[in-house]
Amino acid sequence: MTMSWFAYTLMVFILLTAVTTALFRDVLSAIVVFGAYSLGMAIFYTFLLAPDVAMTEAAIGAGVTTILLLLTIARTTRPSTDRLFERVHWPGVVAVGAFAIVLLWTVLPEMVAVGAEDAPVWANADVTQYYIQHTYDDTGVQNAVTAVLAAYRGFDTFGEAVVVFAAGVAVLIVLKREVFA
């Protein structure tokens, strides 16, 4: 239950990149550091036994999102800076710090320890345990994530696909361009 040094180092890396993303004044630097943050997060997902999520995060979070952000600042403006870091916005820090402390004090004691086998999500006999035990019999695929994605919750996935489709349409409408005329 105790954390390994690998996870500890990775968490420090993620935290550092997140803080520098928030504080860098130069938007380009912030975007580059955010790419590094996404990559660290992808490795951390692998540590948390979610290789599917890690691959998606590495391809989309670290790849596509970074490219889109870079293209946006290439097309708009990039404020010239003399300072490396943003001035700290103290009222914001206080408000957000209070938010974090409230979360930590109220939610943490109610949570089951990370990775415990009596965690409600994992031990749920109707959801998780059912999926794990019946995936192969029901669907004939071995990857439980794919089974849940396409079979057990296919309608859900259909909704997500339509949301993505709608977002693509929305971008084209907002940028009303000769591009896809």
């Binding site: 948390l48 036994l49 999520v53 998606t56 794990i132 995936t135 994530v145 849940v148 996935t157 977002a167």
Partner: peptide, 24 residues
């Protein structure tokens, strides 16, 4: 003894929806 697949699926779709939202 494997991780629960359901939150993974939710996150998987949410990442793709998230990039679409970012693009908008």
């Amino acid at each position: 003894l494997v991780a629960s697949p359901l939150p993974h699926v939710i996150v998987l779709t949410a990442i793709v929806v998230g990039v679409a939202l970012t693009a908008v």
